[in-house]
């Protein structure tokens, strides 16, 4: 027995592996009833949200939360399932965003055609950036990803007219299908929410699929996984690419939301904040990344904190989370929920 016997909740089975009955027929388990209920409730809330007249500001924040969460789901896949943390994620978002911006400016290609391009290129870039992780340890790898971001910013800043250099590039509004005006904020909100829901469902499917379990096995005990014939290298790069796809989608959405893109958006510090958000919210439970994005985006508004104070709050929050709630806020809430249910059940049993 190793000294690491005592596992913190980051490695404990999350949401998905609970022992309650699931409709486990074949390839994908049907999620337990209360998950479905929760999912539907959240969906309903998301749809109804704009009708409560939240105002321009809140709507903007919601959109920002939306695409940030999409990027976070990618990072959560990488870190939560495969155990590899990266602080270069914003850089990958940048690849997606810049692909779209460059396609728009150089070739006049709009959002819908650029979307697959962004996703593909980002996935590719992420896979490439992931290669060194096969050779070096986790901490060394994080430093490499940090450098990647820094390098990307330098390259973008010096890219001349092609990349718009330091001032960046502009893009026009998305050409909405069926004549929907996507310059209107509310419609943009729905688009982003749609993407978010897709990301959520995709994440769920991935985590609960045999592929997800393979990733889990690699994270838990890589030598063992290799011994039973799993091609760990292939799968690790695969999860990087997947994570990159999410980030690319987030990047292009961000670009078309801001209608502008510039290098500092994707530097090392935005990457750190992404890592911070995923740790804060929790990488393993399903709603963790969303929660992380919500907390970090809305906290300054709700708490009335200025940007400096809110960053200090994030930092402190991160420290507390690592020390006390290794599964992030969502993990902590989950634990709370479970212990309450447990108490109720025991009371019912009499």
């Amino acid at each position: 027995m190793s000294a690491d016997q005592r596992r913190d909740a980051v490695t404990a089975p999350g949401f998905s592996l609970n022992t309650r009955k699931t409709g486990s027929s074949g390839w994908l388990e049907r999620p337990p009833l209360d998950h479905i209920v929760m999912g539907v409730a959240i969906l309903a809330f998301l749809i109804a949200f704009p009708f409560f007249n939240p105002g321009y500001r809140f709507l903007s924040l919601a959109i920002t939360t939306g695409f940030t969460a999409i990027a976070l789901y990618g990072l959560a896949l990488q870190f939560g399932q495969a155990g590899i943390m990266s602080v270069g994620h914003a850089g990958i978002m940048g690849i997606g965003g810049y692909t779209a911006a460059i396609l728009a400016n150089q070739l006049g290609i709009g959002f819908w055609l650029a979307l697959p391009a962004s996703i593909l290129l980002s996935a590719l870039a992420a896979g490439l950036v992931g290669l060194p992780s096969l050779r070096v340890g986790g901490q060394h790898y994080i430093i490499i990803t940090f450098c990647f971001c820094a390098l990307l910013v330098i390259a973008l800043t010096n890219g001349g007219d092609f990349t718009g250099a330091a001032t960046g590039l502009d893009v026009g509004p998305i050409a909405g299908p069926f004549g929907i005006n996507l310059a209107k904020l509310r419609n943009m909100y729905y688009l982003v929410m749609l993407a978010l829901v897709v990301s959520l469902v995709l994440t769920y499917v991935i985590v609960h699929s045999p592929y997800g379990r393979t990733l889990w096995a690699i994270r838990e005990n890589e030598p063992l996984a290799r011994a039973v014939g799993i091609n760990t290298n292939f799968h690790k790069i695969g999860v990087f690419a997947l994570s990159g796809a999410f980030a690319g989608a987030a990047g292009i959405l961000q670009t078309y939301y801001l209608r502008h893109i510039s290098p500092p958006l994707y530097g090392a510090f935005p990457s750190l904040y992404l890592a911070l958000m995923v740790m804060l919210g929790g990488a393993r439970p399903l709603y963790g990344p969303l929660l992380g994005a919500i907390i970090v985006t809305f906290l300054p508004e709700v708490g009335g904190l200025d940007p400096i104070d809110s960053r200090i709050a994030y930092g402190v929050g991160l420290l507390l989370v690592i020390l006390l709630l290794p599964a992030g806020v969502s993990g902590g809430l989950l634990g709370l929920y479970r212990s309450m249910i447990g108490r109720q059940r025991r009371a019912e049993k009499g």
Binding site: V87, L272, A275, L276, Y314, G315, V316, L318, I322, L323
Partner: peptide, 8 residues
Amino acid sequence: IMSIGLSV
């Protein structure tokens, strides 16, 4: 990761 928080 904590040191990232500390630096912020």
